[in-house]
Amino acid sequence: MKNSLLAVWVAAGLFSSALMAPQTLAAEVDFPHIETMGVSQIQLEPDMADLNVEVAVTEKTAKAAKDSSDTAVAKFIARLTAAGVAKDQIQSANLNLQPQYVYAQDKAPELTGYIASRQITVTVKDLARLNTILDSALEEGMNRVNNIALKSSKEAEYVAKARQAAIADAKQKAESLAQGFGENLGKIWQIRYYDQRPVQPVMLRMNAKADYAGAVAESYQYGRVTIEDRVEVVYKIQ
């Protein structure tokens, strides 16, 4: 066995499309080896959120539309600041102004007004305050809720933990395979690590079956934030 080429390819189905074919690997590595892939997945309870709301108003003139949208944004920001939300947790977008026309057959388009819109993204670091901040946005004229993304403040910490868990998984697989084939695992020849995609936040969902008379917070479904990582390792066989 030691004089022959031993190539063991281990991969989770989730990542199989990202791997090179075994025959390609064998052509590049001409010594006995074991290759494993370590994978990990950690789920966290969200403890913060990014709330994106928007005001869209229609007025006869461009200035009136701009003034109305600016007023709603200014009032909402003032309310957030008064509630103790730090300025670096508030991001406001620039004005989007569009003319509105009525199109009739055999007639030139008729300008009827302007729509002005602006967005604000608020980082809510305490989920218990999410509903209150959302209510205040609507009360101050923000009439569209575009997105509520649930996140974890411990993301960086658990990204590192997920990486170490993937490393341990790759090592355990290699040791198990070597033992199963009656071989001695040698030193690491190569480590391949690919930057993972950013952790995807969980979108907040309404629970249609919630009791209206119950707590407001229970009418929302808080999903879990998932952190995944992987590492590929090639071990020599002694």
Rank of each mutant, 00 (worst) to 15 (best):
K2Y: 14
V102I: 11
T81E: 05
A78H: 02
A162L: 11
I167H: 11
A170C: 01
M142K: 05
V122W: 07
A7E: 03
D195C: 05
G13S: 14
P22K: 08
I120T: 15
Q105P: 13
A137V: 01
A65D: 05
K66D: 08
I34T: 01
R230S: 10
L134N: 03
D88V: 02
I133T: 05
A208L: 06
R163Y: 09
V29G: 01
Q164W: 12
V8L: 09
D169A: 03
L5C: 01
L130S: 00
L51K: 00
N146K: 13
M206K: 12
R197H: 09
L177H: 03
E175H: 07
P99Y: 12
S153C: 10
I237A: 03
A12L: 02
T112Y: 04
L185P: 02
K107W: 04
A72Q: 09
E35C: 05
S152T: 15
A78T: 06
D135M: 14
A62N: 11
E54G: 07
V122G: 03
A174G: 14
A62P: 06
Q190H: 09
P22M: 09
G141R: 04
E155C: 08
Q238K: 15
A137I: 01
P201T: 00
L134Q: 10
E59V: 11
L80V: 01
Q98P: 00
